[in-house]
Nucleic acid binder design. Structure first.
Lengths: 308, 308
DNA sequence: TACGTTCCATTCATATATGAATATCAGACA
DNA sequence: TGTCTGATATTCATATATGAATGGAACGTA
């Protein structure tokens, strides 16, 4: 397959300017180049992409449907470029602008919302862009300012801080427990339908350290996404491990063996060194830290699950 | 102030390539230009920005701290560029990639999380980027694929669909009601501490239509952010209007005059015409529509508040 | 209808950025 | 120490993109 990626970004710049101004001449003025140049650049872009971007009209150029489809991407580039310019100029010393946060789906959807709500109250001029993904993001190469992760990032040149430990515990739907009974010790629990969760390898190893032999076959269900896991517990599919604070919030589920020491998950906040002292990033960091802490345990004696 | 924005995007492209390859020569090979050209471009960029981007080392070029700070922006540009290339090539016919959603803070933080959780289950390969803002976004000019709004967008060339009506009602903290008593009709309610919410102009007008005279002075508190409003109700600061489904989920608050017909808020889904048939956008649209509907009323006889 | 304005397309001399060739430097290795 | 390798800088002829000038088409207005 051919790489169309090669198209010169100058062309995109030209494209964008023409869209914004509505004519070649106008765009030329705005961009400080001549009108023929711009005309050629637009033509070049159309040829390289094999797409008609504009309708040439007497009053100027207007976008075709295909052109419209490209515009959002071009605009995104322009925004990034302007962000770059701001950063370069060292003028981003204000508490406004966008801060991009990346977090695991689970954290993003269950832990972060109230914290972000608070953030919107404390810093109304800071826009938050949330990227929910379990993929380990490279803070240096991806546009994320702060990462919320369940493990300590290993990259160099990042600042990390452990916020606390997310306590996990066994939970099951009340309906399930009524049907199958509530286990009162580990041996009984192992006779139940167990739901393996996405870190099951880690979990099995963690369990082994606590002297609890467990194999993959002991799980009635396994799944990769924590949300699914969660839903299955709620639906009464069996007994599974989930975050204690989350379980406590769900009226239809109940803790099982609440005092059994299930290893917890660490929660780490990460940013890139170069962004550490950007005011808005620092502000968001602070709110995240303060907002997430109450939900977490600071007890370091709780065993944790280590990353693979 | 000078516009540094003017810097040619080709230079950024060069910058990025040098970072990725680690050397001028390598980057030149990758980019299909000569090494001196690239060297000059890097130098030009440094001069124009007035920043040293690289340490020149015998083994190649490595980023300075200032360079690192610019990198995320440059990378964001590259991602957008590659998105543009994909869109242009017409290859984005798969159910993967990123979909950007914009919604009011309130919707984003209170209504969307469970829906997005579902989305992650149904379409694990679609990344969601959520931009929580009350600002009306221009879907054509901003990189957002789908907007969730409380009003019908007026732009041309967008596809909109009304999902339903968010029912509103009076709520107060139980502690407040214990202290001040529960009003049993509108006249009594007006003697209470009322919390005006951010659309209070709209609200006052809506109330007037229902034959209920109300002025700004009748509100004990006013605030712009719905979250703050919400928190004040929970904190027992008075009686306020909030979404019924949200109020029902909060154990510490109680509905006041639950049968009084408070005008609701419409919820609209919007996307740009050109994106309508992009598979991943269509998929997300569908999940949003199905996920938000259950929380909303489809009863069109409920009065609604119109935008200003 | 004629005039002024605004736009895009074309032409051609010119300025500019480019690449091949080369010089230079630093480290690896025998 | 000498040589090789892979890197960045420098030079200069050349290709390339650029801009001023010009032509032509559409539209509004007197």
């Amino acid at each position: 397959m051919e790489r169309i990626d090669r198209l010169d970004w100058t062309l995109i710049q030209a494209f964008l300017s023409v869209v914004a101004e509505g004519s070649l001449s106008g765009a030329a003025r705005a961009l400080g180049v001549s009108q023929p140049t711009l005309g050629r650049q637009v033509k070049a872009m159309e040829e390289q992409l094999g797409i008609a971007l504009f309708y040439r009209q007497p009053k100027g150029l207007s976008l075709t449907g295909e052109g419209e489809a490209l515009l959002p991407h071009a605009t995104a580039m322009a925004e990034a470029a302007s962000g770059l310019a701001t950063a370069a100029a060292g003028h981003d010393n204000s508490l406004q602008g966008t801060v991009r946060i990346t977090a695991s789906d689970f954290t993003a959807l269950y832990s972060l919302p109230p914290v972000l709500a608070r953030l919107r109250i404390d810093h109304p001029d800071i826009q938050i862009e949330l990227n929910a993904t379990d993929l380990s993001e490279n803070l240096l190469f991806r546009e994320a300012d702060i990462a919320v992760r369940m493990y300590r990032p290993t990259q160099l040149e990042v600042i990390t801080k452990k916020i606390g430990i997310l306590k996990l515990g066994f939970f099951a739907a009340k309906s399930y427990l009524e049907r199958r009974g509530t286990p009162s010790n580990i041996e009984e629990l192992m006779q139940h339908d167990l739901l393996g969760y996405d870190r099951s390898e880690r979990f099995i190893r963690g369990a082994a350290k606590l002297g609890w032999q467990l194999t993959r076959q002991d799980f009635a269900f396994r799944c990769d996404a924590q949300q699914v896991h969660c839903e299955m517990i709620r639906a009464g599919a069996g007994i599974g491990v989930m975050a204690c604070n989350l379980g406590a919030r769900m009226p239809e589920v109940e803790a099982v063996l609440p005092h059994f020491p299930v290893p917890g998950l660490e929660l780490w906040l990460t940013t890139h060194e170069a962004l550490r002292h950007t005011p808005r990033v620092a502000a968001v960091w602070k709110v995240l830290e303060n907002g997430l802490k109450p939900d977490l345990s600071q007890d370091n004696s709780i065993p944790i699950m280590h990353s693979p």
